[in-house]
Computed example of a mutant assay.
Amino acid sequence: MGPFLSDYKNNDASIFKHCVYNNEQDILNWLHDDDVLILDRGFRDTVRAMKQFGFQVAMPSFLNGRKQFSLEEANLNRCITKVRWIVESVNAQLKQWKYFSQTILNSSLCFLSNYIDITCALINAYGSRCVQDIHSGSEMATQMLQKCQTTNPVQLRLLELLETKLQ
């Protein structure tokens, strides 16, 4: 989709909301009710809208004045960040190409999709892979989810010490 004009109102979140509300390129048929949208904090303004469309949203939490996340929040943030890392890595690979690391002229926009396709093909053919073993992803995800379910032994010990001190 796109390109979209760049101004102070056209951030990623407002563009995404526009695409969903207007069903740009039939986007609502790409997404399913059980899909989880993994978003960064820049999309915080879209969360309510995405939930209204029936999508699940995962986004790192905000501290909101607190000094520390709970164990559950910290673990969930780690899982979300791990998934988003691959997206950011691919974006970084594209931006290593001089053409994509600078402002692109409007007159070139009609060719932009082709340029991205060619660049991605070159990266896939000759560049280093962000993920070497694509099959290890399921195993890693399972391990991370298991670790999220386990209790933190340091936290348990601190609670024990606190209880004995209070007695």
Rank of each mutant, 00 (worst) to 15 (best):
M1E: 10
G2F: 01
G2H: 02
F4Y: 15
F4W: 14
F4D: 04
L5Q: 12
Y8C: 09
K9T: 06
N10P: 00
N11T: 14
N11S: 06
D12E: 00
A13V: 01
A13M: 02
H18N: 10
H18K: 06
C19I: 02
C19G: 03
V20H: 02
N23K: 05
E24A: 09
D26E: 00
N29P: 01
W30D: 07
D33Q: 08
V36R: 05
L37C: 04
L37H: 02
I38F: 14
I38D: 14
L39Q: 01
D40Q: 00
D40R: 00
F43I: 00
F43N: 01
D45P: 03
T46F: 00
T46V: 04
Q52L: 12
G54F: 09
Q56N: 08
V57L: 04
S61M: 03
S61F: 01
F62C: 07
L63P: 12
G65T: 04
R66N: 11
F69H: 13
S70A: 12
L71W: 13
E72C: 00
A74W: 04
A74P: 05
L76V: 04
N77Q: 03
T81K: 00
K82H: 15
W85R: 06
W85F: 10
I86N: 10
V87Y: 05
E88Y: 00
E88I: 02
E88A: 05
S89W: 01
N91P: 02
A92T: 09
A92E: 11
L94Q: 07
K95N: 14
W97I: 06
W97T: 02
Y99F: 08
S101T: 01
Q102A: 15
Q102I: 07
I104G: 12
I104W: 14
L105C: 13
L105H: 11
L105A: 15
L109M: 10
C110H: 06
F111G: 04
L112R: 00
L112A: 09
S113G: 08
Y115F: 14
I118T: 08
T119C: 11
A121G: 08
L122D: 07
I123P: 07
A125C: 07
A125N: 01
C130V: 12
V131S: 08
V131E: 12
D133C: 05
D133V: 01
S136R: 03
S138L: 13
M140W: 09
T142V: 05
L145C: 14
L145W: 04
C148M: 15
C148Q: 11
T151C: 10
N152F: 03
P153D: 14
V154M: 07
V154W: 12
V154I: 11
R157T: 07
L158G: 13
L159K: 13
E160Q: 11
L166E: 10
